[in-house]
């Protein structure tokens, strides 16, 4: 009947639909892991499927997992998402790849190959530049919000140290929210210390500026966008994440104020 190396048409079709599912799943996984909003993920997956010739692919996307099935007898697949970070480079990379695929500049196989390398992409900016931007962000936000020029430099230093602590803990500890909490306590303590040493009097201004690089702005924006698009599973989940992050920061600052204020 069939030669040894010759696949029957049914299994060849199954291989292709498998590849489509795998590609969609990986693209979705990368986007959710790096902080994309759900409508965007859904849109990208549907677009890839349409361009691959499978317009009736069904997806169910939540913040912790994706299910995809093709509308025939091939099986449904599930993937889990357990880490969430914020790296807009990877989202942009997936976007670019999907765009190239839509313009028929790559094949599905190449697309899948390149997607697998996206999660290895490094940051654009060296570590010292991130530290520097955390510092300048703290200082300039303090000036914008409060207009207190006298504590600009000390706010820069406090914000920088807070961000270094946060980033370091983020790498070694696998518990969420405790990083924000610890960093917030440190920022509060550093601000009090700065006042004790006579480096500036506006403790409030220093803390507001210093906490700014850690504020969960991305989560809040995403929560609002998800809720607006009617995603009642992921919207509240993201909102909860944002509120927990904000509360961790707040309690950290409040504790520091209580102990040392």
């Amino acid at each position: 009947m069939f030669g040894k190396n010759q696949l029957d048409p049914d299994s060849r079709f199954r291989n292709y639909s498998d590849l489509v599912i795998k590609t969609c799943m990986l693209a979705g996984k990368i986007m959710i892991e790096n902080g994309s909003e759900m409508t965007r993920v859904n849109d990208t997956i549907k677009r890839i499927a349409r361009n691959a010739g499978m317009p009736n692919l069904k997806t169910y996307i939540t913040i912790t997992g994706i299910m995809i099935s093709v509308n025939d007898n091939s099986e449904t697949q599930i993937t889990e998402i357990d880490k969430r970070a914020f790296d807009l480079r990877k989202i942009t990379a997936v976007n670019d790849l999907s765009r190239r695929f839509a313009e028929h500049k790559t094949t599905l196989e190449q697309f899948y190959q390149e997607l697998q390398h996206v999660s290895d992409l490094d940051t654009y900016f060296p570590y010292w530049m991130k530290i520097l931007s955390a510092a300048i962000l703290s200082g300039s936000i303090e000036v914008v919000f409060r207009g207190d020029y006298s504590v600009f430099f000390i706010t820069c230093v406090i914000g920088m140290l807070g961000w270094i602590i946060f980033d370091y803990l983020n790498r070694i500890v696998k518990v969420e929210f405790i990083n924000e909490f610890t960093a917030a306590i440190s920022i509060g303590m550093l601000a009090m210390l700065a006042r004790k040493l006579g480096l500036g009097s506006g403790v409030d201004n220093m803390i507001i500026g210093g906490v700014m690089p850690l504020v969960p702005g991305v989560q809040i924006t995403n929560a609002v966008r998800d809720l607006m698009s009617g995603n009642l599973v992921s919207g509240p989940a993201r909102a909860m994440e944002a509120i927990m992050g904000a509360c961790a920061l707040g309690f950290g600052v409040a504790l520091a104020l209580k102990w040392f204020g």
């Binding site: 790296d87 940051t123 900016f125 931007s133 300048i136 936000i141 914008v144």
Partner: peptide
């Protein structure tokens, strides 16, 4: 200050 702050935040989230 707003321009610089926006830029710096963008660098932190790897835009």
């Amino acid at each position: 200050g707003v321009y610089v702050a926006t830029l710096c935040f963008a660098i932190l989230i790897n835009v």
